[in-house]
Design a binder for these strands. Structure first.
Lengths: 199, 199
DNA sequence: TACGCGTGAGTGAGTGTTCACTCGCTTGGG
DNA sequence: CCCAAGCGAGTGAACACTCACTCACGCGTA
């Protein structure tokens, strides 16, 4: 998408809109997200959004594509660390607490997920996002099983279970602000402990 | 929920509406839930709903109150079984698969959870629902730790982690229909294994 | 240099629809 | 004959999206 020079910022309008979507989603969630609110985060008019995209959902899909790539990059980044450290770092990223700057977005993604059965436009980008996270986790675990850090657990099952727990914590921990932050941390931390070899 | 006679139904209008809400929520989700669709599940008119409730969200809150009670009852029911069996049964209930008759409702509850930050009316009933489930799980685990079935795990942390996993699986497994059913089952099953004493 | 012209980017003011909720009216049982 | 229970037909607001338009510019020509 970028031109090769990358010198004077050619601030691609589509990218700017995707960014505005991210900000607006985090602030307002999906149901309350209006094109007016998106335009408010963008520095252009509401109608201008439709010059670049055909529908609101298409803009959101574009944002999600970017988010999937970013997520994969973040979780794959620290290639030098050992797998236990990497898995704990991934959990730290995925289990968000209320007040965290990612909290709003996590709740919004949860909302989007719940709309997936009714919204074809969003379904694929969301699959990509969750799939990327799942793969990154499974890779970390597979590596750890391979080098003897972890027991002989099933990497796919473990990754799925862990991602489910992270996603699910967004509901009662972040959205409802129930007082379970410490419990959840002890919960996932103990789970990672239980994956370690020997004991 | 049933009155003791169970003979001639004294069909409390409020309860009937709550039931209609449940059916409509499962079918359409929350965003697409309109008062017209609720009335369609009810055998009365749209305006009739407002004779009993002041707002749509109040009807949903009433439904959630009922659901919390039902959930607590379901998870506490089989008091005779041993705690491992009870915990596995609870997981079986909480981890829903696409196609399951509960699937629609689970997705709808996930949607409602994601609206909680913006909707005061729904927040408390949702806290009750999640809290009831959390307590039921913690009780089962506490009992199992007490009688030596489980290791000396923290019941609250374990319950929170398990509920998070169940809730979160609704997103990518049920709403997105990603092909992770077998992985998830192996995941939670292995987790329950890891809670057992000795080994 | 000066001029007109096509075009990419953007706008302000609608428009049609969907929806929660209201209102004045009916009706049947006690 | 009263009143709880319910109805049909609105009503107004919110919102996604459209449309006719403006404007700044690069460029070929003279």
């Amino acid at each position: 998408m970028d031109d090769e020079t990358g010198d004077s910022v050619p601030p691609d309008a589509k990218a700017e809109i995707a960014e505005a979507i991210g900000a607006a989603l985090a602030k307002h969630g999906y149901e309350r997200l209006t094109t007016a609110k998106i335009a408010a985060e963008y520095d252009k008019s509401e109608a201008g959004l439709y010059y670049h995209y055909d529908s609101k959902d298409e803009m959101i899909a574009a944002f999600l594509d970017g988010a999937a790539a970013a997520q994969a990059a973040e979780l794959t980044d620290d290639d030098r660390e050992d797998s236990e450290t990497r898995l704990r770092a991934a959990c730290e990223r995925l289990f968000v607490a209320p007040g965290d700057e990612r909290a709003g977005l996590h709740v919004a993604v949860m909302e989007l997920l719940s709309h997936a059965p009714y919204n074809e436009t969003l379904r694929d980008p969301l699959r990509e996002l969750e799939g990327a996270t799942l793969d990154a986790l499974a890779d970390i675990i597979r590596e750890g099983v391979g080098d003897g850090t972890f027991r002989e657990v099933d990497p796919d099952a473990t990754a799925a279970f862990l991602l489910a727990a992270a996603d699910g914590s967004t509901g009662f921990h972040v959205a409802l602000e129930m007082d379970v932050g410490a419990d959840l941390r002890r919960g996932w931390s103990a789970y990672v402990d239980s994956l370690l070899a020997d004991g």
